[in-house]
Every structure is written in structure tokens, then in C-alpha cells.
Simulated scan of single mutants.
Amino acid sequence: MEPICGLDALPHPVSAPKRRIAIVTDAWHPQMNGVVRTLTTTSERLRAQGHEVAVVSPERFASIPCPTYPEIRLALPRPGAVAAMLRDFAPDAIHIATEGPLGLAARRHCLARGVRFTTAYHTQFPEYVARRTGLPAEWFWRYIAWFHAPARRVLVATESIGTQLRAHGLSRLHRWSRGVDLAHFSPGAVQPAAYAELPRPIQLYVGRIAVEKNIEAFLSADYPGSKVVVGDGPALPALRRRFPDVHFVGRKTGAELAGYYAGADVFVFPSRTDTFGLVMIEALACGTPVAAFPVPGPLDIVTEATGALSETLERAIDAALYCDRGDCAAHGALFSWEAATRQFLEGLTAAEPAATP
């Protein structure tokens, strides 16, 4: 079984020639989620290092609302439009980040011209679609295996996700972790004034408010204290009506978001379908322990010192409250965008043919 390649052990940045990198993604602004934040930050870091980055995203095309998820726009590229953009940019490396219409167009172009490319598995797509359609997830795993099979490397965030992909026949894997902006997310962030009025312990959720995030499991948990939800999404109106005692505060960013993390007693991550969970490492960097289910993502990030995992969220919340906040902050600080960007670049290099002597 081939291991996931990566740069976890490298102590110093890898010097690399400046590159022309095309990133093709169906997830982009104005969406706000872990995929968009990861791609945005990675693009910014690459440009800061002197690389030239072109992002082929839905904002460059006409689009329609995604069925059952109107906040997500599906691009409608004209035949050959994505291929023309890639030819005009003439990249040294092509990374296809998502499996949607733009990703399919880029994949088709690369295969037709014999161009090597990398992909990434950001989202538990089969489980998401199965949750929304009621159809078996295995049907959609066939599409995932087909889509990623020609890639020279499939970039994955954790070993648990790598194990899932290997089980579906994908073995050319490369580790691409995630990072935290420690300038914002730290234990010293100023907590919101509203926290002073709330009964403790404050249990916090941050992220998209959508059915696949399994937020209802958190809001239904029978544990004393206060529940706070940061974020928005299609499930928000229904959850507001059903859980009137929960404090829904809307979307927050930057220093304000960091304050919500730092002032909470425990961060609850109820999702069973995320591939990583960027919000978990942001919470840890702010010194807040994590309570979650024992599934991929939490299994790869949360340690006994920094949170608790249980099939019963109440038990996980209770156990996490005993964690040392200093240990949580130290663990969260280990996830840097510098290291993650190095891993991304190394994944592109691994996809290239060997140099001719």
C-alpha cells in the first residue's frame, strides 16, 4: 500500500523555481467555506513567493444555482472555454481542485493533450450528495474514482481520507495539510461582550449551516450551558425556529471570529463528512478544546490532550472541558500555511515527469 507522500518532516522551506500555476475550481468567492479559504490562502502564499497563479473559477463564467444548494453557483462554460484559458496562460502545472463542471472541463483538456495534472479531494462528495438525494453514497464514489484516476497525484489533507481513497482504488496520494493564521487566531483574542451574559460552559459551532454539517446533532445535545452558532447557510431559518434558545450570531471573520473561538469553553464539530475541518485547528489555536465524533477529520486532528471524540456528543463535550487550553493552543500553532503551501508545491513537483539527464 503506497503511503501518502508529504513534507511533514522537513524543518525548512524548500527552495523552488518560480512557476506558472493554474488552479481550476468550482468553489470560489462569494462562497465561504474551508475549500474556498484553503484555495484563496494558498494562491496568496504562492503569489507572495513569486509564483504566477491563475485561478479558473465560476466568477469568470455564467452560472446557475446548484440544485438543493442555491448558494453554490455551477459554472456554465462554453465548449472549449476552459481549455482556451489554460492554453493562453500556458501553465507549468495544472491543479484541478474540484469535481464540478470546471474541473471536468479542465480534466478533459488535460487528457486530450496529454498534460499531467493534479487533483485534490477536498469534500466528502459522495456522502454530501447521498445526504441530499437519499441515494447510496457508493454510487457517487464510482464517479470520484473515475474523476481522480488519471491524476498524477491526488492531494489529501489527512491519512484517514487517504485510507478511504485507497479503498476505492486511488493510490497516487500526496499529503496537503492546512494552516492557521496565527496573527488572528490565538488565545489572546478578545471575546465578544455578549459572552459575559451567557451561562457557562459556552459551546460553540462555526461553519456553514447546512444539512451535511450535521449541526442538528449539536443543537439537540442535552448538555447544560449555552450554545452559540457562528455562520450562515440554507438550514439557518429552520434551525432558528426549532432551537429558539440557541444563540445564532451570523457570519464572523478575522479578529471578531477569533474572539468567539477564544471565549468559548468548548468547540463542537458535529460533521461526519468533512475531509479536514479547518475550523477545528482555528479553535485549537485560540486555546479552545474540540468535541467531535470519531470520524475522519477529528480522528486526524484531535488528541487526548486537545479534545475528546465520542459517538455521544454530550460525553465528548464533557471530557473536552477538562483539557488544558495551553496544550490546545500549542497543538493548533503546529498547523502553518507556510508548511501547507510547501506541501502543495511538492505535490505539483511529484506530478511532473523526471528530469532528463
Rank of each mutant, 00 (worst) to 15 (best):
E2P: 12
P3H: 03
C5I: 13
G6V: 04
L7F: 14
D8W: 09
H12P: 08
H12N: 11
H12D: 15
V14Q: 11
I21Q: 10
I21L: 09
A22P: 05
A27C: 15
W28I: 04
V36W: 04
T42K: 04
A48Q: 12
Q49M: 11
I64A: 13
T68S: 13
E71A: 01
L74C: 06
L76P: 15
P77S: 03
R87C: 03
G100S: 02
G100C: 04
L102Y: 09
C110T: 02
L111S: 08
A112P: 07
F117Q: 02
T118K: 00
F125H: 08
E127M: 12
E127S: 10
Y128W: 14
Y128T: 12
Y128I: 08
Y128F: 14
R132N: 12
P136A: 08
A137W: 01
I144P: 05
W146Y: 12
R152D: 06
R153C: 12
V154W: 00
L155F: 08
V156P: 00
A157V: 15
T163Q: 12
L165S: 07
H168R: 13
L170Y: 02
L173I: 13
W176Y: 15
G179M: 06
G179C: 03
V180F: 00
D181Y: 00
H184L: 10
S186G: 14
P187M: 14
P187T: 06
P187Y: 06
V190T: 06
V190P: 10
Q191E: 11
A196P: 05
E197H: 15
L198M: 07
P199C: 05
R200Y: 15
P201W: 11
L204C: 06
Y205T: 03
I209A: 07
I209D: 04
A210M: 09
A210P: 09
I215A: 01
Y223K: 10
P224I: 06
K227Q: 11
V229N: 00
G231S: 05
D232L: 07
A235N: 09
L239I: 02
R241L: 13
R251T: 07
T253D: 14
A255N: 03
Y261D: 01
A264S: 09
V266T: 02
V266G: 01
T273I: 11
T275H: 03
T275L: 10
G277A: 06
G277M: 08
V279M: 12
A283Q: 10
A285E: 05
G287V: 08
A292S: 08
G297M: 14
G297Y: 12
D300R: 01
T303P: 07
A305K: 00
L309C: 05
A316R: 00
Y322F: 14
D324Y: 01
D324N: 03
A330F: 01
G332Y: 08
G332A: 15
L334A: 14
E338T: 09
E338A: 13
T341N: 03
L345Y: 05
E346L: 14
E346S: 13
G347Q: 05
G347R: 03
E352C: 15
E352G: 12
A354M: 15
A354Y: 09
A354H: 13
P357I: 14
